Amino acid sequence: MSIQRIGVGPRMSKAVVHGDTVYLAGQVCDKAAGKSVGEQTQEILSIIDGLLAEAGTDKSKLLMVNIWLSDISTFAEMNAVWDKWVVAGQTPGRATVEAKLAAPQFTVEIAVIAAK
């Protein structure tokens, strides 16, 4: 079975497609770095939409999502954006935890697995 890699870098690929499954690496924002959790979440979800489309799928086919917040007290702020984005009736399995992220300007990181 073939493996397709999207956004290949020296350390990781942004997405990997194997069979009918799409695996996205943890995504952080670019333009919203240092801004609010809501703004970072919005940008990350937009990035995820683009990567899923490039891989031939979309958010209605999400299987599992992992979300890391640098401060769990921002859970409701992140969820306010998430709830508007996720497809009603097609919600994935999901875990959200507090964790120290790679750099202080990042307050949210999201990784997804989706079907094609």
Results as ranks from 00 to 15, higher is better:
85 W>C: 00
88 A>N: 12
74 T>W: 03
3 I>M: 15
33 A>F: 04
46 S>H: 02
79 N>H: 14
25 A>I: 00
109 E>A: 15
78 M>S: 14
12 M>V: 10
106 F>E: 04
114 A>M: 00
2 S>H: 10
4 Q>T: 15
86 V>T: 14
11 R>K: 12
17 V>C: 07
23 Y>E: 05
111 A>P: 06
21 T>D: 06
8 V>Q: 14
42 Q>G: 06
4 Q>P: 06
113 I>D: 04
84 K>H: 15
21 T>L: 09
109 E>F: 03
34 G>K: 01
51 L>E: 06
14 K>I: 08
85 W>K: 01
93 G>W: 09
34 G>L: 01
40 Q>P: 04
86 V>H: 13
93 G>P: 05
93 G>I: 08
58 D>M: 07
113 I>A: 06
111 A>K: 04
76 A>T: 10
24 L>T: 14
97 V>E: 11
12 M>F: 13
81 V>H: 13
9 G>D: 04
100 K>C: 04
108 V>K: 00
16 V>Q: 08
40 Q>W: 02
83 D>S: 15
49 D>T: 01
41 T>R: 00
49 D>V: 00
60 S>A: 15
104 P>M: 01
36 S>L: 04
86 V>K: 14
55 A>D: 10
52 L>N: 00
82 W>A: 13
78 M>Q: 14
6 I>Q: 03
102 A>T: 09
87 V>R: 12
54 E>W: 02
6 I>R: 00
58 D>P: 09
80 A>H: 13
48 I>Y: 06
70 S>R: 10
94 R>I: 12
62 L>R: 02
91 T>W: 07
19 G>F: 02
108 V>N: 02
111 A>T: 11
